[in-house]
């Protein structure tokens, strides 16, 4: 096996040129793209982490909001239950009061009607008894004193 310095030098030069060409036209862009991809993956991982955290906080917020809404709904129901029972109570109360008032009025009316009827009856009876007495005793008595007399008698009768 022989050793030629021409081949030796040519190999070195060729390797140098190959290294330069590869570095410029192949590895440069390739390393660039690999670095970019590394960045991209890193970014995406960070973004995923951020969105996960955001989702978690939103979830918690929504849970709190739901809890709040539930509480409010419960309160509203409770309140309405209270007011409705109170209103029912009031309605019943007022109806009772109305009924009592009506009854009272009716009783009063009855009383006054009765009194009126008694007074009318009394007048009627007084007139009739004057007519009867004037007819019976045929005595000339002025009507006024007669009526006084009869009234007096009737009072005596009523009080007895």
């Amino acid at each position: 096996m022989s050793w030629h310095w021409e081949t030796f030098v040519f190999a070195i030069v060729a390797f140098g040129i190959l290294y330069w060409l590869l570095n410029k036209y192949a590895f440069g862009p390739l390393f660039g793209i690999m670095e970019k991809r590394r960045q991209l993956v890193l970014e995406q991982m960070n973004a995923a982490e951020a969105s996960r955290k955001q989702a978690e906080s939103q979830m918690a917020e929504q849970k709190a909001a739901l809890e709040q809404a539930r509480k409010e709904a419960y309160e509203i129901i409770e309140q309405s239950r209270l007011t409705s029972s109170k209103q029912a109570e009031e309605i019943v109360q007022s109806a009772k009061a109305e009924a009592a008032r009506l009854k009272e009025e009716a009783l009063k009316d009855i009383e006054s009607e009765k009194n009126k009827a008694i007074a009318a009856l009394r007048n009627e009876v007084g007139g009739m008894s004057v007519k009867i007495a004037s007819k019976i005793i045929e005595k000339q008595i002025d009507e006024k004193s007669q009526e006084q007399l009869v009234n007096q008698y009737l009072k005596e009768v009523g009080s007895k």
């Binding site: 081949t7 040519f10 060729a14 040129i17 036209y25 192949a26 590895f27 793209i33 991809r37 991209l40």
Partner: peptide, 23 residues
């Protein structure tokens, strides 16, 4: 042999990076 090896190496590398794609 040296020239052919260099050419094959370079062509292979160039073919590989011809349509560089990130994703």
């Amino acid at each position: 042999a040296i020239i052919i090896s260099c050419v094959i190496t370079f062509v292979l590398a160039r073919l590989a990076v011809r349509n560089l794609s990130l994703t």
